[in-house]
Design a protein around this nucleic acid. Structure first.
Length: 645
RNA sequence: GCCGAUGUAGCUCAGUUGGUCAGAGCAGCUGAUUUGUAAUCAGCAGGUCGGGGGUUCGAAUCCCUCCAUCGGCUCCA
């Protein structure tokens, strides 16, 4: 007998060899039907796998992440089987579970192609196999045995994967006529999979390396109920409606002209106003935190970036240098602001008493992003960073870093970004040549970043190998409407640029010392931030930020004069308003201005003109009734104040 | 850059196998209506069907190529 401990602490005894499924069955029949995987001592295993020793167990249904893992992993195998039936000789790469579904990377037979038109028949085949209720059978094999199978099949991808596995840990899973190298876990059988949708098709390099062959990646998602799939597809449709590219067009915020160039956004008046308000907001916060404004031209001498190390690292990925016509000197479109700010630091001798100095600039930079990578406002070739560089003494670093975290958190709170994640990016300890700077400096910076984040209560994920080449960083990420992750704010420690630019200050000991630098951009880039803000709010911006706060709607042309009077008064109260003077019915004007996401609609007609009042309608709330003009102004001003508190 | 898809009026989209196929709605303009909380009515005007080349008696439709966009991959100071 073995002892099984449940999550609630209860312990029960079972015969050795009992499976998670059997245990579930012993508790309740309905539970047993829903268990798709099991955690045994934190290791996820098949629900049907015999358990031979004591352990703590957790039974996973579809609702658990662990359950989805098994579910989608099995779905990937199912898809592979269907693909094999349509494309004999197909070679399989990897087929993992992802956040929302699964994919499989395959190498199609010579001359074969696959397109979205083929999805229907593949889905049908998968459902057909699923309905036949084939069990997923686990089999432990020797490395040689596995190698023999794939050598015979001629699948060099699986052979490569096998070569990295240790003998004795290799398992195959079989369902129906299909066997795959796989660690598991898998569903008890294929019948759990009730609804399947293949989503898209993409090229993907084998093992993510562009030097390798490009395989065909097929993305899909599957569910235990048709209803769940329907709901998911509706969710995707809703997400598309929030796409910043669509809303940006509808609200006339920005525009891309092929004549200007791809990836070069043009800010239309309303978008520019929105952006100016965001900048003004951050500038105010920065002044309060002791930042000083600086400004730099849009080009800089190539040697500046050679000195900084960026040219060697990214020169090939930049726009090419431009030459002066007479001297032939080379200048580059500014790809980052930091070297410029370093030179501003160098403009005069510094004392330890001067530090920290904090230079801030909304600096527009230009980078050659690859053609296929451009994406709305989130990935462009010219963008404006809300950049600042803090030069401080090493003993001030951690405190300064924490102050920057405060700014980022304040901004996120004010703009109602509740759902963000933070990531600490450290050096890859096995590939130190990728980075510049001494081991001691790296160790110190990495330690202080993590301490600062912890002291600010951030739950961070640590990623090795994701650091900038000059230092470790703390990034803030949010998801867009379609669930894609984007980096917004970033805070980076840099011991290296101060060395390269020979930055110094005189210490209290009358010796020269090297300052430490913090790069930081709470928004990241104005373009990306506005994009994420659009999707976050679906275009319904906070009242203080929105380009037009109120539209006055005269009931007929007879009341245009009164509307003008109201407009003047509202303008005096600094409420951004305009009149919808079109010769349309009230209902029509309401509708059009609601679609333009105007927060307040002010209806004025005979009654209001007589009483010197307004009828107020709020976006999302409907008619609020009659207001005295000054009462409405107070309401708006209070609302703005509360939002910015 | 790579894989796959898409590109018809300012916007959203029709256009069957190549043969009155250059269309609709919205937006725009003109006029009528003078309107009370999510679409008043009528008329007019809008496009070298992404650009270029080819096949054909004939191309929005088939082929090639370039450009842009979309979904991914790689990259991201």
């Amino acid at each position: 007998m073995i002892k099984i401990t449940f999550p609630d602490g209860k312990v029960r005894e079972y015969e050795s060899g009992v499976s998670g499924f059997d245990i579930a069955n012993s508790l309740s029949n309905s539970l047993a039907r829903e268990v798709v995987a099991v955690s045994l001592n934190k290791e996820i295993i098949d629900a049907t796998r015999p358990i031979l020793t004591d352990g703590s167990i957790k039974l996973h249904k579809w609702d658990d992440d662990e359950g989805k893992l098994a579910f989608w992993h099995s779905s990937a195998h199912l898809m592979a089987e269907a693909l094999e039936s349509f494309y004999p000789g197909i070679k399989l790469g990897i087929g993992p579970t992802i956040e929302n579904g699964f994919y499989y990377d395959v190498d199609l037979p010579e001359g074969a192609t696959i397109s979205e038109n083929d999805f229907g028949k593949i889905e049908q085949k998968m459902l057909e196999i699923a309905r036949e209720k084939h069990p997923f059978v686990r089999k432990e094999v020797s490395k040689q045995e596995a190698l023999d199978v794939y050598t015979k099949k001629g699948d060099e991808y699986k052979i490569e994967l096998l070569s990295e596995l240790e003998d004795g840990t290799i398992t195959f899973y079989t369902q129906n006529n299909f066997t795959d190298l796989c660690r598991g876990p898998h569903l008890p059988d294929t019948s759990f999979i009730k609804a399947i949708k293949l989503l898209n098709i993409a090229g993907a390099y084998w093992r993510g390396n562009e030097k390798n062959k490009q395989l065909t990646r097929i993305y899909g998602v599957s569910f235990p109920k048709q209803k769940l799939l329907d709901d998911y597809l509706i969710l995707l449709e809703e997400a598309k409606k929030r796409d910043h590219r669509k809303i940006g067009k509808e609200l006339e915020l920005f525009y891309f002209s092929p004549k200007v160039g791809m990836g070069l956004p043009l800010w239309l008046p309303k978008g520019a106003q929105l952006r100016e308000r965001l900048e003004a907001f951050l500038k105010k916060v920065q002044v309060e935190h002791g930042y000083l404004p600086v400004m730099c031209p849009h080009i800089g001498h190539k040697n500046l970036y050679v000195t900084s190390g960026h040219y060697e690292k990214y020169g090939k990925d930049s726009f090419q240098p431009i030459k002066t016509p007479v001297e032939g000197e080379e200048f580059m479109l500014k790809p980052m602001n930091c070297p410029h700010h370093c030179e501003i630091y160098n403009s005069k001798p510094r004392s330890y008493k001067d530090l920290p100095v904090r230079y801030a600039e909304f600096g527009t930079v230009y980078r050659y992003e690859q053609h296929g990578e451009l994406h709305g406002l989130t990935r462009v070739r010219g963008f404006t960073q809300d950049d600042a560089h803090i030069f401080c003494r090493p003993d001030q670093l951690k405190d300064e870093f924490k102050k920057v975290i405060d700014i980022v958190l304040y901004i996120f709170k004010t703009l109602d970004f509740k759902d963000f994640t933070t990531q600490v990016s450290l050096r890859d300890p096995n590939d130190k040549v990728k980075y510049i700077g001494s081991d001691e400096n790296w160790a110190r910076a990495e330690r202080e970043i993590q301490e600062a984040a912890a002291e600010k209560g951030l739950k961070t994920v640590v990623e090795l190998g994701e650091a900038a080449f000059y230092g470790p960083k703390l990034d803030f990420m949010v998801k867009d409407a379609l669930g894609r992750k984007w980096q917004l704010g970033t805070i980076q420690v840099d011991y290296n640029l101060p060395e390269r630019f020979e930055l110094e200050y005189k210490g209290s000991d009358n010796e020269m010392h090297r300052p430490v630098m913090i790069h930081r951009a709470p928004f990241g880039s104005m373009e990306r931030f506005v994009a994420v803000l659009i999707e976050h709010t679906a275009g319904k911006f906070p009242l203080w930020l929105t380009p037009e706060q109120a539209v006055i709607i005269p009931v007929s042309e007879k009341y245009n004069d009164y509307a003008k009077k109201v407009l003047n008064l509202l303008n005096n109260y600094d409420i951004r308003s305009l009149i919808d003077e079109r010769n349309e019915k009230v209902g029509r004007k309401i509708r059009d201005n609601e679609l333009k996401r105007i927060p307040y609609l002010i209806v004025v007609g005979e009654k209001e003109a007589e009483n010197n009042t307004l009828s107020v309608r709020k976006q999302g709330e409907g008619d609020l009734g009659e207001y005295k003009i000054e009462d409405f102004a107070t309401r708006v001003q209070t609302e703005v104040k509360n939002l910015l508190a």
